[in-house]
């Protein structure tokens, strides 16, 4: 069997004295869609930050496709085929929608730091950016500066930048947060389409999205994974219900 897409072992993260991630062991299989759920402040985003090297790990192991990635810089991990989105929109505000997407594909197309290619002449970059723009439904906003897009449009762009490079491991942090019902449905369809044949890990509070999209679900509570299973099994897992009831959150367990 090939190595898992992502392997975490004994992963810990402290902020000062407070332990936020308290020993996570989790394998994300290749090609699966994996959701991470859990109450607010459980450490889901922090976990993503550790995997993508936005934050340094306190202790433990992270392997990406069998390769140790601890100590690498974010761009090095990205180049190994991992791309992530952010819970708080993180885009290039002064660049147009199209430029945002084109920036996201340049490295993966091998243009590196070139100052001898003319951007306008890079057909592959243009086509790829246009295709993603079409996918996320922002074609009509092509030349609008990203900073003045509406919130939902910015969220869509956030996803677009993440998937544009064609990375095969994709981390999405609450991709549908703040979207309306119909926008959410569109986003789910989009995510399903663009992650076909890829590995997806997503943090999501919307149980509809989770159960509709995920092959497996992990529940992170207070810095630890308390259960990893198929969605149906998670739904009736006693420990999970306990955790959710105990913290009395919004996660809307039980229905859908």
């Amino acid at each position: 069997m090939t190595a898992p897409a992502i392997r975490m072992q004994g992963l810990k993260k402290n902020f000062g004295v407070s332990e936020i991630i308290r020993g996570v062991d989790l394998d994300i299989h290749r090609g699966e869609r994996h959701a991470i759920i859990g109450p607010n402040g459980a450490g889901k985003s922090t976990l993503f930050h550790l995997i993508s090297a936005r934050l340094p790990v306190t202790s433990g192991i992270i392997e990406l496709k069998g390769e140790n990635v601890i100590g690498l810089k974010p761009f090095e991990i990205n180049r190994k085929g991992l791309s992530r989105s952010f819970q708080i929109t993180n885009i290039f505000h002064n660049l147009s929608v199209f430029e945002n997407l084109r920036c996201a594909v340049l490295w993966s197309l091998g243009y590196r730091y070139s100052f001898w290619h003319r951007l306008a002449g890079l057909k592959d970059a243009r086509l790829r950016a246009d295709a993603v723009m079409e996918d996320i439904g922002l074609t009509s906003r092509r030349d609008t500066p990203a900073g003045i897009l509406s919130y939902a449009e910015q969220r869509a762009l956030e996803i677009g930048i993440t998937i544009a490079s064609g990375a095969d491991v994709i981390l999405l942090d609450e991709p549908t947060a703040g979207m309306s019902r119909s926008e959410t449905d569109d986003a789910v369809a989009l995510i399903r389409r663009v992650t076909e044949g890829k590995t997806l890990v997503m943090v999501e509070h919307d149980m509809g999205v989770v159960f509709g999209l995920a092959d497996r679900v992990s529940v992170l509570v207070y810095g630890q994974i308390i259960a990893t299973d198929a969605p149906a099994a998670i739904r009736c897992n006693a420990a999970v219900q306990e955790a959710y009831l105990g913290t009395g959150t919004h996660a809307g367990h039980g229905h859908e």
Binding site: P74, F75, N78, N90, C103
Partner: peptide
Amino acid sequence: DNPERAEFVGYD
């Protein structure tokens, strides 16, 4: 515009 995001699209 956003050095952090630039790192996450592969650029040093």
